[in-house]
């Protein structure tokens, strides 16, 4: 049975085109599927990710298929495709917007959630979370903590206020939402 996999497209919508058009991606509607993006993609050279196919799926509005696919997260945002696209499609920016939609729909990679937690808790995506980093700074004749949110707790609070204000905490399940989840589970 595993050889029989119907892959017919039976439903086409304007959902994504509409969502993206609001963000100024009209060019995508005129994509000519030339393959410059895939041909330029360093990620596509080592994975099954096909930028051109992704753009086509956006045109056809295959929303669920795009947003649930982890290949959406294979792009290293090198912008080569965007620079070379003969139709001026902001390919990388389209991918970023698609990722925003994916996160809204609850598709997020585990390590990325961890990153959000660090961001919320410290103001840094890569924080000083071990003694050795302080020591390394001191070894290089720098204060053990940098003059960032690390040195200024009130700045850390500012970040948290902003992340609450934009509901980033709710979106990614960090801060109060992490605690809530913890309480529910216990």
């Amino acid at each position: 049975m595993e050889n029989i996999k119907p892959e017919k497209i039976t439903y086409v919508s304007d959902d994504l085109t509409r969502l993206l058009r609001d963000a100024g991606y009209l060019e995508l509607c005129a994509c000519i599927q030339c393959g410059t993006c895939t041909g330029s993609c360093p990620s596509g050279r080592r994975t099954a990710s096909r930028t051109r196919s992704l753009m086509k799926k956006v045109q056809l509005g295959l929303k669920e298929e795009i947003l649930s696919d982890k290949e959406l997260w294979f792009c290293s945002t090198c912008y080569t495709c965007l620079e070379r696209c003969p139709r001026g499609v902001p390919v990388t920016d389209v991918i970023i917007s698609l990722r925003n939609l994916a996160v809204k729909e609850g598709y997020m990679q585990e390590p990325h959630i961890a990153l959000c937690k660090m961001f919320y808790n410290t103001g840094h995506g890569v924080p000083i979370n071990e003694e050795k980093w302080k020591k390394l700074r001191e070894y290089h004749k720098l204060n053990e903590l940098p003059p960032t949110t690390h040195q200024y707790p009130e700045a850390e609070k500012e970040i948290q206020t902003l992340l609450k204000s934009t509901e980033f905490d709710k979106l990614t399940g960090v801060g109060d939402y992490e605690k809530k989840k913890g309480e529910e589970e216990s």
Binding site: G35, T36, T38, G39, S40, G44, R52
Partner: peptide
């Protein structure tokens, strides 16, 4: 069928062609 993405020069003067066979 595929627009060439880039051309690179190899040591021996050859040219490396990158594209997608769409």
């Amino acid at each position: 069928r595929g627009r060439v993405a880039e051309l690179l020069e190899a040591e021996n003067g050859n040219v490396i062609v990158r594209a997608e066979d769409t």
